[in-house]
Simulated scan of single mutants.
Amino acid sequence: MSTSNTTNRITVVGAGYMGGGMAVSFALGGHHVSLADATPELAAAGRDRLLNEAVSFVERGLYPADAADILAERISSAKAVANAVSESTYIAEVVSERIDIKSGVLVSVANAAPDDAIIATNTSAIPIRELEVHVRKPERFLGVHWMNPAQFVPGVEIIAGTYTKDEVVSRATELISGIGKVPVKVPDTPGFIANRLQYALHKESSRLVEEGLISADELDAVVSNSFGFRLAFFGPMAIADMAGLDVYADTYRSLHGELGEAFAPPKYLQELVSEGKLGVKHGGGLTRLSKANSEAVASYRNAAYSSLSRLKAEVGSAPSEA
């Protein structure tokens, strides 16, 4: 895991599974972390769980060899949230995904934190504009949405609120990047980006299962071994550019005819194709991929897919009751 050149005083409010993973990421990234919760007992129990887990994870090769010692040194449990945040430069609020709970915690945190401390809420879908009203000096407040399990998944969404200063967005992005994560600034739109896409896929998947077209296990096998396999290296827009936007447009037309307006060809796609922009093979597309770097991209793709195939064979299938 990467180590930041600048040490921050970080408080994670919420010592559960997500908050714990974030605390581990910050600590292994070089920062001192105070883990806080509703009671000192919960905070202490959360820290103990992380340290015990670290020993097992080191033995299994999931953490660096010295991780258990690093976490024991850098993660402390707080006796009270107010005391912990009063000396922090960055505060991550990671409590339950309910506005009534988050609002109360944010009020307390904002009142106790230094005026220049960043306050970041971890939320999967609650609009930042609905939470910022509970924060004193909301210009230092933003959303920083991690993915579970936080210590292993690299993606983090950075969501500015109505009043968030650009400097705060930059500081938060630099901090998250500095510990080896991949922060991306996204808009304060319902579900942000990751969950809007994830739930769109889940909705269509559920429809296929409900209609009796396929079982849940069979559907998961299709996804994880086809386009889901590729998504580890390329997003959907790059995949379309590589496949050919004309191919996508034709496929959409077929789906549109059978499944209706939900599968109508996107307007941008039709416009690009009409202009002769077909992706990598001709004219470019939506991403930075082009014919000029197509050979390098293909070489990278082949090596990446081959490596992932070997990794899947090595790791094997997820445990099941079967």
Rank of each mutant, 00 (worst) to 15 (best):
R196L: 14
S34R: 07
S4R: 13
R47P: 01
V109A: 00
N52M: 08
L213H: 11
V95D: 00
V13T: 00
K277T: 09
M18K: 02
H31T: 14
F192A: 05
G30H: 08
R253C: 09
D66E: 15
G235L: 10
D69P: 04
S290T: 06
L278F: 13
S294V: 06
T6L: 11
L255G: 08
A292K: 14
A15E: 00
A238K: 06
E261R: 10
L308R: 06
G257T: 06
E157T: 06
G19E: 01
K102E: 03
A160F: 00
D241E: 08
R60H: 09
A262V: 06
A303L: 10
Y90W: 07
P138G: 03
L201C: 09
L50V: 05
F192W: 08
A240I: 06
S88Y: 02
G316I: 10
A82Q: 11
A243K: 09
L245A: 12
P236R: 05
L35P: 01
R136S: 07
S254R: 11
V94C: 15
I101T: 12
I118Q: 01
G235K: 15
A232T: 15
E41D: 15
L28N: 04
P266T: 08
T251A: 14
L245T: 08
G155E: 04
L289Q: 01
E87H: 12
E53Y: 05
A262P: 12
V315K: 15
L208Q: 08
K137R: 14
R74Y: 14
V55Q: 13
S254G: 10
A112M: 02
V105A: 04
L231R: 13
R98H: 09
D246R: 11
F57P: 05
R136M: 02
L142G: 00
E210M: 10
R253N: 14
E261A: 05
A44C: 09
N52Y: 03
V153E: 07
I10W: 00
G279K: 02
T173I: 11
P64N: 10
A160C: 03
D188M: 10
K102A: 05
I239E: 15
F192Q: 02
K312T: 04
P266N: 07
N293L: 13
T39Q: 13
D250A: 06
G191I: 08
S205Y: 13
S76F: 04
S274M: 05
I75F: 00
S34N: 11
A84P: 02
A110N: 00
P183C: 07
S320A: 13
L106Y: 00
Y248F: 12
E174P: 07
S317Q: 08
E321F: 12
D100L: 08
P190W: 06
Y248W: 13
K181C: 06
I91G: 01
F234H: 09
A113L: 04
S25G: 13
A200S: 10
L278P: 10
G283T: 04
V222K: 03
E53V: 05
R207P: 06
V133W: 01
P154L: 11
F192I: 02
T39P: 10
E211F: 03
S320W: 06
I179V: 15
E204G: 07
S177Y: 05
T162G: 13
G21L: 07
